[in-house]
C-alpha cells in the first residue's frame, strides 16, 4: 500500500533521491534518533558521543534490542510477549548455574564450558517460548495471558535454580559475549551479535516465504488460512523465536555483568515492547519493519544512557519511557486516522 503510493507519486512528480528517502517509512524515526542523539550530546557537553560511550550504548542496547526483535515477531502476528524478562532470567539462571565456578552453586557438579552452557540456555528459551506458542495456537488463549503465565513460570524456574541467590564467578570465556571486542579494543562483540541478529531477521522477514507467511497471518489470519498458510504453526514459531532471542539477550547481559540475580532483567519486557512500538510495529499485527525496531531500541538506549550520564533520578527514567511510548503510539494512531 505504502510503497505503491510512493511509486505513483514518484512517477508524477520529482524523482529526487532526497524525496524518496524522506518518504521512506522509517525516515521520521531516523530523524527522531538523530535529534535525540544531538540533543543529549549538547546536554552532556559531548560526553555522550565519545566513542567509548557509544560502544557502551551499543552493548547496553544489544540485550533490549535483541529481545525487541523477538517481540516484534510476536507483535507482527497480532500477539504480545510479556514473558521476555522471565525467560531471560530463567535461562540466564540455568546457564550461570552450569557455568559458575562456585562449587556449591554448580548444578552439574563441574563448571561447564561455554559451548555447553549457551546451547542449554537457548534450548530452555525455545522450550519456554513453545509453552506460550502451544497454548496460544492450539488452545486459542490470548497471547497476553499465555505469556503472563509463562513469565511467572520462567521466573519460578529461575528462582528454583538460583534459590533466590545471586550467581557469580562464571567461567572466564563467557566474558567474551558481553565485554569482548573484535579486534581487541575495536567493535564490541555484543553489538556484532545484535547487528547479525537484526540482519538475519531482516532477510527472514522480507525475503523468505516464512516471513511473508508471518506477515500474512498477522494482517489477516482468515485470509492467510484460506491461502494455505499454516497460521497456527506461524503463531507457535514466533513465540519460540522470541523465547530464543530472549535467552540470547539474557546471555549478553549476564556475560556483561558476569552475575545473575532475580532482578537483573526487571522491566525488560516493557522496554522491548516500547522499542517495538516506537519502531512502528502495529499492535494489531501485520505491519512493521526490523529497521524500525532496531531504531526504536537505539532511541530508548540512547535516552537511558544520556539520563544516566546526566545523573537523572530513576523516577524520571520511567516517566520518560512512559511518555515516549504513549507519544509514539498516539502519533501512529493519529496519522493512521488522518489517512
Amino acid at each position: 500500500m505504502t510503497t505503491e503510493s510512493v511509486e505513483q507519486r514518484d512517477k508524477k512528480g520529482s524523482r529526487s533521491v532526497a524525496r524518496r528517502v524522506f518518504r521512506y517509512e522509517n525516515a521520521t524515526l531516523g530523524i527522531i534518533l538523530a535529534a535525540v542523539i544531538a540533543g543529549i550530546a549538547i546536554a552532556t557537553g559531548g560526553k555522550s558521543v565519545a566513542v567509548r560511550n557509544m560502544k557502551m550504548v551499543l552493548v547496553e542496547t544489544a540485550t533490549m534490542g535483541i529481545c525487541a526483535i523477538g517481540q516484534a515477531f510476536v507483535i507482527l502476528t497480532g500477539g504480545i510477549d510479556l514473558s521476555v524478562a522471565g525467560i531471560a532470567f530463567g535461562t540466564s539462571a540455568l546457564g550461570s548455574a552450569m557455568m559458575t565456578t562456585q562449587e556449591f552453586q554448580q548444578i552439574l557438579g563441574y563448571a561447564a564450558p561455554v559451548w555447553q552452557g549457551i546451547p542449554a540456555m537457548l534450548a530452555l528459551g525455545a522450550a519456554l517460548g513453545a509453552i506460550s506458542g502451544l497454548v496460544v495456537s492450539r488452545v486459542n488463549v490470548p497471547g497476553l495471558i499465555a505469556t503472563l503465565g509463562v513469565w511467572q513460570i520462567a521466573h519460578g524456574v529461575g528462582f528454583f535454580i538460583t534459590g533466590g541467590f545471586t550467581l557469580t564467578r562464571m567461567v572466564p570465556s563467557l566474558k567474551f559475549f558481553g565485554q569482548g571486542f573484535i579486534p581487541e579494543g575495536g567493535f564490541p562483540v555484543a553489538g556484532i551479535i545484535f547487528i547479525v541478529v537484526a540482519v538475519i531477521c531482516y532477510f527472514v522477514w522480507h525475503h523468505t516465504t516464512y516471513g511473508q507467511s508471518v506477515y500474512a497471518s498477522g494482517g489477516s489470519p482468515g485470509a492467510a488460512y484460506l491461502s494455505g498458510v499454516k497460521v497456527k504453526n506461524m503463531q507457535l514459531s514466533v513465540y519460540v523465536i522470541s523465547g530464543v532471542l530472549a535467552a540470547l539477550g539474557g546471555l549478553i547481559r549476564t556475560a556483561r555483568v558476569m552475575s545473575v540475580s532475580y532482578s537483573s532483567f526487571d522491566s525488560l519486557e516493557l522496554q522491548s515492547i516500547a522499542a517495538a512500538v516506537i519502531g512502528g510495529m502495529s499492535l494489531f499485527g501485520g505491519k512493521g519493519t526490523i529497521v524500525g525496531v532496531v531504531l526504536g531500541a537505539l532511541v530508548i538506549g540512547v535516552i537511558r544512557n544520556g539520563m544516566a550520564i546526566l545523573g537523572a533520578d530513576p523516577f524520571l527514567e520511567s516517566t520518560v519511557l512512559g511518555v515516549i511510548v504513549i507519544l509514539a503510539v498516539g502519533i501512529d494512531t493519529w496519522r493512521r486516522r488522518g489517512r
Binding site: 504480545i80 497476553l144 516493557l270 515492547i273 512500538v277 499492535l283 494489531f284 533520578d313 530513576p314 523516577f315 524520571l316 527514567e317 520511567s318 516517566t319 519511557l321 512512559g322 511518555v323 511510548v325 504513549i326 503510539v329 498516539g330 494512531t333 493519529w334 486516522r337
Partner: peptide, 30 residues
Amino acid sequence: LVSRLGIPSLIATFGVWQLGYGAAYYVTNG
C-alpha cells in the same frame, strides 16, 4: 488516551503505569 486518542489500552495503560511509578518516586524520593 484510550477513548479520545484511540490508543490501544494495553499501551496507554502501560505508559501510565510507568508515569504512576515515576510520580510516586517523585513524591517520596523512593
